[in-house]
Amino acid sequence: MSPIDLLGLGLLGLRTRPARAALSALGIAIGIATMVVVTCIPASSSATLTRELSALGTNMLQATAPAGQAAQVPLPEESVSMVERIGPVTAVSAVANTHTVIRRSDRSDPGDGAGLTVLTAYLNLPHVLEARVDRGSWLTEATARFPAVVLGAVAATRLGITDPAVPEGGPQVRIGDHWFTVVGILAATPLSPDIDRSALIGWESARAFTGFDGHPTVLYIRAHEPAIEDVRAVLPATINPQSPANVQITRPSEALTAKRATENTYAGLFLGLAAVALLVGGVGVANTMVVSVLERRGEIGLRRALGASRWHIRAQFLTESVALAALGGVAGTTLGVLAGAGWAVHQGWLVVIPASATATGLGGALLVGVLAGVYPASRAARLTPVEALASA
């Protein structure tokens, strides 16, 4: 008997009893759908929470000179390029305090900086800090050489500047003894509130107009999250090999601990429910197959009398059981994926459909079909032709 003949024979029982087959497949579908849903929903929720926690800087470190010692032991000028050589590090940027005062007018008190700091910044600073320019533009390789400045959100408010395009040519502020043109205003930067209260100028511009010595004050380091602690351990010696004790590294954000704690929490909470639902579906298939054997004794006896072996009978009922479970598995997987995606969209989460969820759903259905069909198939195969025809 070819596999195609065997499949056709196995599907015969489903076609002749469609209502019973549909109800049995529904039991499997509900179990599989539950399994897929309780996998997809936690995966979507976890991915969304992980994204939100990542926005808090779980993969970012800051390196500074200890308070009170910056003037004596500043960070080396080449510290950024040294940190870039660390394998897990993905991005490095830096700022430095120019120790100058920013004013809106040259007639205001030269010592009154309104609590604002003038920093010189690397051009990749917005990328590393995930900062966004609210109005205007960030510094470029061209503007970083000239007296151009970008204001943090708080700095712009305190200086009374709301639009870098007004007046024509851009508003100007006084930094030290020079006028600088405001070319942009940053949105608030939650990862580094100090940037909000700062005016940022180019590295070369700072050297030319403020007497900046080239030593960075703060390094911002992004690294692969699993290696963040290892990177932190080697940073002091990398940044300042001559005096690593004079480099202070922030600890990884506590959000990193929270993120790791949530990664394996959700799915385990619901898998028990899915297993119970799947078990109920399997019992339904087994019950259907046992009843099918009892009702079809005449058919079994006639096939045995016409030469069908016990293997043929066993294969027929086992195929029918697997086909019944497979139909339920396909329906349940489809329903589970749609329900999981729909719920994620409704909640505003990322839609995550793990491949393992669909594979487990279909695989679980087939496994249930095999296990549920073994006993009924074996029972049917043990019937002798005479016994089967006599009890028909």
Results as ranks from 00 to 15, higher is better:
Ala359Trp: 11
Gly363Lys: 09
Arg296Cys: 06
Ala63Cys: 11
Leu116Asp: 04
Tyr375Ile: 15
Gly160Gln: 06
Gln316Tyr: 08
Ala359Met: 14
Leu294Gln: 15
Ala381Ser: 15
Leu318Arg: 12
Asp106Val: 09
Arg297Asp: 06
Gly8Ala: 11
Ala63Met: 04
Thr250Asn: 14
Ala165Gly: 10
Ile28Gln: 01
Arg260Pro: 00
Leu14Glu: 09
Leu350Phe: 06
Leu53Arg: 12
Ala153Asn: 13
Leu256Met: 13
Gly113Phe: 03
Ile249Ala: 03
Ala121Leu: 03
Glu263Arg: 10
Thr98Lys: 02
Thr319Cys: 13
Pro376Asp: 10
Asp106Pro: 06
Val283Tyr: 08
Arg314Lys: 08
Ser309Tyr: 02
Leu279Val: 15
Thr100Met: 12
Arg304Val: 07
Gly202Glu: 05
Ala47Phe: 05
Asn240Thr: 01
Ala142Phe: 11
Val234Lys: 01
Met82Cys: 00
Val80Gln: 07
Asp163His: 09
Leu389Arg: 12
Val118Leu: 05
Ala114Cys: 04
Pro376Tyr: 10
Pro252Asp: 07
Pro66Ala: 09
Pro376Val: 10
Arg15Ser: 12
Glu168Val: 14
Pro88Tyr: 05
Glu299Trp: 01
Gln62Gly: 02
Ala131Thr: 08
Leu327Met: 15
Glu78Lys: 10
Leu367Val: 15
Ile249Leu: 13
Ala55Thr: 05
Gly176Phe: 08
Ser24Pro: 05
Ala121Gln: 04
Pro226Thr: 04
Ser378Leu: 13
Glu295Ile: 06
Leu11Glu: 02
Ala277Ile: 03
Val154Ala: 14
Ser378Gly: 13
Asn246Cys: 01
Leu75Ala: 03
Gly329Thr: 11
Pro126Gly: 09
Ile161Tyr: 12
Glu320Ile: 10
Leu278Val: 12
Ala388His: 10
Gln69Gly: 00
Val128Asp: 05
Val276Thr: 13
Val80Pro: 01
Ala70Tyr: 02
Glu229Asn: 13
Gly169Trp: 12
Pro385Asn: 11
Gly211Gln: 07
Thr265Ser: 11
Glu78Met: 04
Asp112Gly: 03
Leu191His: 06
Ala142Leu: 11
Glu295His: 09
Glu130Trp: 04
Val283Trp: 06
Phe317Met: 06
Arg132Glu: 14
Ser192Trp: 03
Gln172Thr: 15
Ala227Cys: 00
Phe317Lys: 06
Ala208Gly: 01
Ile30Trp: 02
Leu119Arg: 14
Gly31Phe: 05
Ala341Ile: 05
Pro241Glu: 06
Gly10His: 07
Gly160Trp: 08
Ala377Glu: 10
Leu12His: 12
Glu52Gly: 11
Ala261Cys: 00
Leu53Glu: 09
Trp179Ser: 15
Val73Trp: 12
Pro167Lys: 12
Ala187Phe: 03
Tyr220Asn: 07
Val330Gln: 05
Val80Thr: 12
Thr334Asn: 01
Lys259Asn: 06
Trp138Cys: 06
Thr181Ser: 13
Leu129His: 08
Arg314Glu: 08
Arg310Phe: 01
Ala274Tyr: 09
